[in-house]
Amino acid sequence: MSAPALTAKQPKTFAFTADNLETAKKVIAKYPQHREASAVIPLLQLAQAQHDNWLPVAAMDVVAEMLEMPRVRVYEVASFYTMFNRAPVGKYLLQVCTTTPCWLRGSDDIKHVCKSKLGITDGETSSDGLFTMMEVECLGACVNAPMVQINDDYYEDLTAANFTTICDELAAGKTPSIGSQTGRQGSYPLNAAKKAG
């Protein structure tokens, strides 16, 4: 994940919106005086959310200045955590879990859909700029494997077919229902939902 982030076209400036600036100040206030640097991760998240889900150098510099910490310390944090994207990503960031439980339950099929349907593999963005695919390690939803995190939401109990549907709906601008795609509640046993019904 230390992809060469600087090849991306970097905007010259970045500024928090008035709302986000307010939120940022609240976040900073949570930490003791002279420990403002503790707020670096929430502030980076805020900046990333505001900036099409990726962090340009200018945004990191703004955060560094707000927290009075050396810029390079912010770059270190941003590059260490995989949740920070330091290069532009598609509108929908598909984080495909490929750790053992998901892999055993068919994450290879999901990857295959990405390749055949969207034409992307790990780290690539589709030509229409809608989808970016990323292989990730365990996201903690193993009971509903295989799973994919799309932006902030989990999509679970996936198959090649229902994942294709999800991609189609997203491309059409619709919002597919989140969570399990087989209709079970949470992580109940597969037939539990029927019993309850």
Binding site: M1, S2, P70, V72, R73, E76
Partner: peptide
């Protein structure tokens, strides 16, 4: 403070 360690694990630089 201009030098840093970027990335993580085997990709750290």
């Amino acid at each position: 403070p201009e030098l840093g360690a970027f990335g993580r694990s085997e990709h750290m630089e």
